Simulated assay, not measured.
Amino acid sequence: MSPRLPLYCPPGGLACLAGLEPEADLRSVFDVHELPGRYRVGPFELSGVPLPHYVPNVGVRLENGLVALAYTGDTGPDPLLAELGRDTDLYIVEATDWKGEPQQSHRNLLTSEEAGYRAAQAGTRRLMLTHFWPGNDRAASAASARSTFGGEVLIAVEDIVVPLEPI
């Protein structure tokens, strides 16, 4: 029998996958590690921070003493975003900029300006914006993030390669 693949996910993540493959025994395929939590993954320490969204969401941080990067996943505003991205070389933050989102009482998504603000609070070196609402102007999103973040702002695009530099 082959070793199971490690799967790091919020509670209930495997059940969501099981909905796609209801006849498969996913526990025979995946070695599930629930987040939040701390785990050793190769040369990295992986940690997770619970963040607000309409389904369970965990922002993820990878670090090894030389480099650190973090990714929010879909999230609404939360003070923990600054801790997640603290002193990273690269902070990948969703920037949906959905026009209907700011009017809602419970926020599930960020604006580009908020992404920049949280990156500035975190002291990250570089911010990569991702998870754009369809049809949004990505250059405008980057400009909005730059209004609150003074570092380099990147846009997530297919096949982008971002070298990580020691912190």
Rank of each mutant, 00 (worst) to 15 (best):
G13D: 11
A68N: 06
R126D: 02
L35R: 06
S28V: 06
A120S: 13
D97M: 06
L69P: 05
E34D: 13
C9P: 00
D137A: 07
V41C: 07
P10G: 07
E23C: 06
T72C: 00
D87E: 13
I92V: 15
D31R: 05
T75S: 13
D97W: 01
L110T: 13
P50G: 11
V93L: 00
E34M: 05
V162R: 02
A82M: 04
P166H: 11
E113Y: 02
L51Q: 14
A119C: 04
L46R: 08
V41E: 06
L81V: 12
M1I: 12
G42Y: 00
G151E: 04
A145R: 02
M1S: 14
A142Q: 13
G76L: 04
L51S: 07
L90T: 13
D74K: 09
P134R: 14
V153Q: 03
V29L: 09
V153E: 06
A15Y: 01
D74I: 12
G59F: 00
V161R: 09
P50Y: 05
I160K: 10
A24P: 02
L20H: 07
N64F: 02
L51P: 05
A95S: 15
S147N: 08
A115K: 01
V67E: 11
F30N: 06
D137F: 02
S144Q: 09
A120G: 08
P52M: 09
P22W: 06
S112L: 05
L51Y: 03
P163R: 04
L129F: 04
H131S: 10
V55T: 15
T96R: 08
G85N: 08
F132W: 10
D159S: 10
T96E: 08
G73H: 02
V49P: 01
G151A: 04
A70T: 14
R138H: 12
G73Q: 06
T96S: 12
E94F: 00
L14N: 09
R38Y: 00
V32K: 03
P36I: 13
R38F: 00
V29G: 05
I167Q: 10
I160C: 04
F44S: 12
Y91R: 12
V60T: 13
L84T: 07
P11Q: 15
W133Y: 14
L46S: 11
A68G: 12
V32E: 04
P3W: 07
T72D: 04
V29M: 03
R38C: 04
Q121F: 01
F149M: 04
V162L: 05
R61G: 03
T124Y: 00
L7R: 03
Y91W: 10
I92S: 08
P102C: 14
L7S: 07
L69T: 14
L26M: 06
V60N: 03
Y91V: 09
L5F: 03
R4T: 13
V29Q: 09
L80R: 15
G100I: 08
G85V: 09
V41R: 06
G150W: 02
D25P: 05
L20I: 08
R61A: 05
G42R: 01
T124K: 01
